[in-house]
């Protein structure tokens, strides 16, 4: 067992873990933050995307130990109290989810996309940037709409 500590959603956490523990296992099994999901075993589906030091990463292929000292944000840490993040609100408003399983990863990817590429995102850019996220329910139509709207809302929120 090896000690690890990190900031998760603004709270300091530390634990003794099996060195092979993946970040997603640490979040789900140790911290019971079950909003981050596992949809595949080849880093393809993006259900497990969280932010580590501001980057969107796939927590299913990241060892928890490599995040020692890092700042991690999961879907549970996105809203401010009862106030939804604009991207969360945009997913609901635009029916950007059905079963909800890919949704946390989609939203985390989308937020980081806006942080990286700005709030004026065209459809082509959004679709290309979703390369690492699979959804089987929506056909992406409303996810693309939601991300465009969420990006605009993030711009307004930042003003």
């Amino acid at each position: 067992m090896t000690a690890v500590s990190m900031m998760v959603n603004g709270q300091h956490v530390s634990a003794e873990i099996d060195p092979r523990t993946l970040l997603v296992q640490f979040l789900r099994e140790h911290l019971r933050l079950t909003g981050t999901h596992v949809g595949c075993d080849t880093s393809q589906c993006g259900c497990c995307v969280v932010h580590v030091n501001g980057d969107a990463i796939k927590s299913c292929t990241t060892l928890a130990l490599t995040c020692d000292g890092a700042e991690v944000t999961t879907i549970e840490g996105l809203a401010k109290g009862d106030v939804l993040h604009p991207m969360q609100a945009a997913f609901r408003e635009n029916h950007g989810l059905q079963c909800g399983f890919c949704t946390p990863g989609m939203i985390m990817t989308a937020v980081e996309l806006v942080n990286r590429k700005g709030t004026n995102l065209d459809e082509h850019t959004i679709r290309e940037e979703l390369e690492g996220n699979l959804c089987r329910c929506t056909g992406y139509h409303n996810i693309v709409k939601a991300i465009g709207a969420g990006a605009q809302a993030m711009a307004s929120a930042a003003e």
């Binding site: 969360q88 989810l97 909800g100």
Partner: peptide
């Protein structure tokens, strides 16, 4: 707009796993 969405967009869904 869907009533069930709040729990899904906030990571509060409860799936079997």
């Amino acid at each position: 707009r869907r009533k069930e969405d709040f729990r899904f967009i906030t990571g509060k869904g409860r799936y079997t796993d």
